[in-house]
Design a protein around this nucleic acid. Structure first.
Length: 562
RNA sequence: GUUUCCGUAGCUCAGCAGGAUAGAGCGUCCGCCUCCUAAGCGGAAGGCCGGGAGUUCGAAUCUCCCCGGGAACGCCA
């Protein structure tokens, strides 16, 4: 039985409020010397018509201490509960061992489906640092929802349709050469793309030529389709290298082109539901009642738009996966777009409209201006990953020169540093890309967490806990702090899911790591006294286990040596 | 202009279903390896929580106004 619940029950019994409220009001004191749980008595002041500190003092006298609660002390308006540290440690650590890598998870998802639309790379465009956040946030959410008992469908909604492919083919046919593209890959395509825009500035006719080429793709012209397919495969091969480094897989690559034949349904359904209005030649859904600009479904030339496509995709996903939730991990620039078409889904009468969530995040820019594919100004994600791995190799050459498996570990740590960087802060924050920051492995970083894990593993290689554990050994401040951090991990995971904020898991991992490192420094785990050693090894094993679980949840691996 | 997000230490950020002295990391300065990985640990310095009103016993947290910054705003995605 959970201590927090037990305490809430006794407060409820003595104060007259419901156990539910009591549980709600209960908080964790700002510092450990003030106890493990605190009940602020302000809330009772009104109904009891007494001063809060008086209420606390009165409750202190009459409250019956539940088993495992050592004492209760009124401190001003607060009622502070002190748990028996040994029993708390026992309860928490046993839970970690019995649940193993499932610790912090639950079965609340009940196997229901969650679609997560993330990463969404563009064909023939660079996979750059701007894609990092969508990719790592989406992937982390995938892991977190799975941990909570959901079944996730990871969808890479490829940007694989549109007139830019006409431009690409025109540019390739005019200035390109096969060898360059085969050798340089997307970078060569980007050069052609940049050149196209430069030339098109001077000669408007290029745009017509591009449109013609795109029309050929649409009409199934063999040459055009072959080139289009070639570029698509080439881009995906390159992206696959990044995904491989990140250890990310997708369950579906159904992108824009996939929905080409699924948009008639959207138009006819909107028509039959009388939601479509002709305005300035375009077919729109009026959203002025919700203070939004109209959602354009068909252009005046009859072509579809991305809102049409997103609606088609949502309908398809609902039919195909019957999702409980569908998340779109897309930058906040598209806030309005999502609000608009979510509203259209709602107006269409679909009750699941409120199951669509735009998981938005801030922009990525560079110190010296904005990124622009058109101007050829990009930082490729793979270059960042490789630089981080290289940096790790250098550090390892210095710090652990005789480690076997250098390449594998360097990859784990280097990539971990980059991934962590995208998951350490709240999603809404804009990020200014900074090499120094990405390549910093000190302090609260991925490598720090991985290092902590490796340290713990190192101790556990010397000895494993065995037999009965004397939990009273773990009552000092340092081990208690580790226990407390481990104990609060499950709440962090649940909140991370509820808010779609993976950084809450990152922070929870850091809590455990810094508590563990302090413990490691202050107390000798391999103590001479067997009982002491055994208890500390037990704590070490639990901490390592939860750190690993936490890292895995946000998409990092945990090497046992580094 | 309208809508929306953001503004906390030199820098990057936590804290924001209101509560006990506002926390980390980086950077700076000072300490700690004859003992389990120093990618570590400790300490110091550094804050009218953008400004002003209001609600409240109590506001970094809620409301309104102002200032500063980002983003979006009909046929691109």
């Amino acid at each position: 039985m959970d201590f927090k619940q037990v305490i809430a029950d006794v407060i409820a019994a003595e104060s007259g409020i419901s156990a539910c409220d009591a549980l709600d009001w209960l908080e964790t004191p700002p510092n450990p010397e003030m106890g493990d749980y605190a009940f602020p008595c302000f809330k009772l002041a009104k109904q009891l018509r007494k001063a809060p500190h008086q209420i606390a003092a009165d409750l202190e006298k009459i409250i019956a201490l539940p088993a495992g609660v050592e004492k209760v002390i009124a401190d001003g308006p607060y009622l502070n509960f002190y748990l028996n540290k040994a029993r708390l440690a026992e309860q928490v650590l046993q839970k970690v061992f019995s649940e193993g890598e499932r610790y912090g998870g639950s079965s609340m998802g009940g196997g229901r489906n969650v679609c997560i639309d993330y990463s969404s790379v563009n064909i023939a465009k660079p996979f750059h640092i701007g894609h990092l956040r969508s990719t790592v946030i989406g992937h982390a959410l995938y892991r977190i929802y799975e941990h909570m008992g959901y079944h996730c469908i990871g969808i890479n909604h490829l940007g694989d349709w549109g007139t830019q492919f006409g431009k690409m083919i025109y540019a390739y046919q005019t200035w390109g050469c096969k060898e360059d593209v085969e050798r340089e890959g997307v970078a060569a395509l980007v050069k052609l793309y940049v050149r196209f825009h430069e030339e098109a500035e001077k000669d408007e006719r290029l745009n017509d030529a591009a449109r013609t080429w795109f029309k050929k793709i649409e009409d199934g012209d063999p040459e055009a389709v072959a080139l289009y397919t070639w570029m698509k495969e080439l881009t995906l091969r390159e992206a696959a290298r990044v995904y491989e480094m990140l250890d990310i897989q997708f369950d579906s690559y159904a992108g824009e082109s996939f929905y080409n034949d699924k948009m008639d349904r959207v138009v006819s359904e909107l028509q039959s539901k009388r939601l479509l209005n002709l305005d300035q030649g375009a077919q729109i859904v009026d959203l002025s009642a919700w203070k939004m600009p109209p959602c354009i479904i068909l252009r005046s030339d009859g072509a579809t738009l991305y809102a049409t496509r997103d609606i088609a995709a949502a309908l398809y996903r609902k039919d195909t996966y019957d999702f409980d939730q569908c998340l779109y991990v897309v930058a906040y620039q598209q806030d309005l777009h999502f609000r608009q078409w979510f509203k259209v889904i709602e107006l269409m009468g679909y009750s699941w409209a409120n199951r669509l969530t735009h998981v938005s995040f801030g922009m990525v820019s560079v110190n010296d201006g904005t990124l622009s594919t058109r101007k050829g100004k990009v930082i490729y994600l793979i270059d960042v990953l490789r630089a981080a791995v290289q940096k790790t190799r250098e550090i390892m050459a210095e710090k652990s020169p005789d480690l076997a498996d250098v390449d594998a570990v360097a990859a784990q740590v280097g990539v971990g540093a980059v991934v962590w960087n995208g998951l350490y802060n709240g999603r809404i924050k804009d990020i200014v890309f900074d090499w120094d920051n990405v390549l910093n492995f000190d302090g609260e970083t991925g490598p720090y967490a991985q290092y902590t894990y490796a340290r713990a593993c190192s101790v556990l290689r010397k000895a494993q806990p065995a037999g009965a554990v004397d939990y009273s050994v773990l009552c000092d401040a340092e081990p208690s702090a580790v226990v407390a951090a481990i104990a609060s991990f499950p709440d962090a995971v649940r909140e991370a899911m509820e808010k779609n904020e993976p950084y809450l898991v990152s922070r929870a991992v850091i809590e455990i790591c810094s508590a563990f490192n302090r413990f490691y420094y202050e107390q000798r785990i391999m103590a001479d006294e067997p009982a002491v050693r055994n208890a500390r090894l037990t704590l070490t094993k639990a901490a390592a286990s939860v750190i690993k679980t936490g890292l895995n949840l946000i998409g990092l691996t945990a090497p046992e040596r580094m």
